Amino acid sequence: DEEIEKWIETLLKRNISLRVNGKDLEIGSEEFKEWVEKFIKEV
């Protein structure tokens, strides 16, 4: 979905790490990609 890709790009540009389930996810890491894929499937 384009919306999500733009959102991810924005996050990448800002180099933010997300806190997911109490863990810091490094943007661009494998864990982050897995989380994004799960997130996309749920939406």
Rank of each mutant, 00 (worst) to 15 (best):
E2T: 12
G22E: 06
S29T: 09
E2W: 14
R14G: 15
L18D: 01
K38A: 11
K6S: 13
V36A: 06
E3Y: 14
E5G: 07
R14F: 15
E30A: 13
K6P: 02
S29N: 03
W35L: 08
G22P: 02
L25E: 01
E34T: 10
I8E: 02
V20P: 04
V43R: 07
L11G: 00
W7I: 06
N15K: 14
I4H: 07
E42M: 14
T10E: 15
E31G: 08
K13A: 14
I4N: 02
T10L: 10
D1M: 14
S29E: 02
E2D: 13
K38Y: 06
S17R: 09
E26D: 12
E42K: 09
V43M: 14
S17A: 09
I40N: 02
V36Y: 09
E5P: 10
L11H: 03
E5F: 13
R19Y: 04
D24E: 13
I8N: 00
V43S: 08
E2Y: 13
K13L: 10
N15C: 15
I40H: 04
S17N: 10
V36D: 00
I40D: 01
K38T: 08
W35G: 00
E3L: 13
E26K: 12
R19P: 04
S29Y: 07
K13G: 13
D1W: 14
S29L: 10
E34Y: 10
R14K: 14
I27R: 02
I40G: 01
N21R: 05
E9Q: 03
E30C: 04
N21L: 10
E34S: 10
V20S: 06
R19S: 07
E26M: 11
S29D: 04
R19G: 04
I8K: 01
E26F: 12
E31M: 10
I16A: 05
K6Y: 09
K23G: 03
I4M: 08
K33A: 07
G22W: 12
L11T: 01
E30M: 12
E9N: 02
W35N: 00
R19Q: 10
E42S: 13
K6L: 06
K41W: 06
L12A: 05
K23C: 12
G28I: 05
E26H: 09
I16E: 06
E30Q: 14
F39V: 08
E3P: 09
F39T: 04
W7Y: 03
E2M: 12
N15Y: 08
E26W: 09
I4A: 03
L11Q: 02
E9H: 01
L12D: 03
L12R: 05
V36M: 10
S17K: 11
K33Q: 10
D1E: 08
I27N: 04
K13M: 09
D1C: 15
K38E: 11
K38P: 00
L11V: 07
K13D: 12
I40K: 05
K33D: 05
S29Q: 04
L12G: 05
R19T: 09
N21C: 15
L18K: 01
I16T: 06
I4Q: 02
E37G: 08
E31P: 04
V20H: 04
E2F: 15
E34Q: 10
V20E: 04
K13E: 14
D24K: 13
V36I: 14
L12W: 00
L12S: 03
D1T: 13
D1F: 14
K41D: 04
E2I: 12
S17H: 11
V20R: 03
R19A: 08
I27L: 12
E26N: 08
D24Q: 11
K13S: 14
V36N: 00
E26V: 14
K23D: 05
D1L: 15
E2Q: 13
G28S: 05
G28M: 10
I16L: 00
R14H: 15
V43K: 06
V20L: 08
N21H: 05
S17M: 05
W35S: 01
V36K: 03
E2H: 10
L18P: 04
L12P: 02
N21W: 01
K13N: 13
E26C: 14
D24M: 14
E2S: 14
R14D: 14
V20I: 10
E30R: 10
E31Q: 08
G22F: 06
K33R: 14
E34N: 11
K41E: 06
E42R: 09
V20D: 02
E42L: 13
S17I: 12
E5N: 13
E37V: 08
G28W: 11
L25Q: 03
K38N: 10
E34H: 12
K23Q: 09
V43L: 15
I40C: 15
V36F: 13
E9I: 04
N21I: 07
L18W: 01
L25S: 03
E5Y: 15
K33I: 11
R14T: 15
V43W: 13
V43Y: 14
G28Y: 07
K6R: 12
E26I: 12
K6A: 10
L11C: 14
F32T: 01
F32V: 03
L18M: 07
V36W: 11
D1H: 13
E3I: 13
S29F: 11
F39Q: 04
T10C: 15
E30N: 08
K23I: 12
R19I: 12
I16Y: 00
F39E: 02
E26A: 11
I8T: 01
F39Y: 08
I40W: 14
E30D: 10
E31D: 07
W7T: 01
E2C: 10
I4E: 03
T10F: 06
K38W: 09
S29A: 05
I27D: 02
N15W: 11
E26Q: 11
W35I: 05
L11D: 01
V36G: 00
S17W: 02
E37T: 09
V43G: 04
F32W: 09
V36R: 02
G22Y: 07
G22K: 01
K33M: 11
E3T: 11
K41H: 06
R14P: 11
V36L: 15
L18F: 03
I4L: 14
T10D: 15
E37N: 06
E3D: 13
K6W: 13
I8V: 06
F32N: 00
E30F: 09
L18Y: 00
S29C: 09
I8S: 00
W35H: 01
K33W: 15
N21P: 03
R14A: 15
L18S: 01
D24V: 15
W7Q: 00
G22M: 10
K38G: 10
K6E: 07
K33G: 02
I27T: 06
F32G: 02
I40M: 07
K13P: 04
L25A: 04
K6T: 07
E37F: 04
E3F: 14
N15F: 14
L11Y: 01
V43N: 05
L11P: 00
R19V: 09
G28K: 03
E30G: 06
K23E: 06
K33T: 05
G28A: 07
V20Q: 04
I4W: 14
N21V: 06
F39G: 01
G22C: 10
S17P: 09
E37K: 13
E42D: 07
E3M: 12
I8G: 00
W35P: 00
D24A: 10
L11K: 00
K41A: 07
F32S: 00
F32Q: 01
S17E: 09
K13Q: 14
E30P: 14
N21E: 07
N15T: 09
K33E: 05
F32D: 01
E31L: 08
V20M: 06
I16M: 01
W35Q: 01
S17F: 02
L12Y: 03
L25D: 03
D24Y: 11
E37P: 01
N21M: 07
G22I: 12
I27Y: 08
E2K: 14
S29G: 05
K23F: 10
L18E: 01
F39I: 13
I8R: 00
F32I: 03
L12F: 02
E3Q: 11
E26Y: 08
S29I: 07
E34R: 12
D24R: 09
I27C: 04
I27V: 11
S29M: 09
I40P: 00
T10M: 07
V36P: 00
I8D: 00
K41G: 04
E5I: 14
N15P: 06
K38I: 07
K23W: 07
L11E: 03
K23Y: 10
T10P: 01
R19N: 07
V43C: 15
R19K: 11
L18G: 01
N15S: 11
F32R: 01
F39K: 04
D24L: 14
V20C: 15
I8H: 00
K23T: 06
F39M: 11
F39H: 06
W35T: 02
S29K: 04
N21A: 06
K13V: 12
S29W: 12
I4G: 02
E2N: 13
R14C: 13
E37I: 08
S29P: 07
W7K: 02
T10K: 13
K33S: 08
R14L: 15
L11F: 09
G28Q: 03
E31N: 08
E34A: 12
S17C: 11
N21D: 08
E37Y: 06
R19E: 07
L18T: 01
E42N: 10
S17L: 12
K33H: 12
F39W: 10
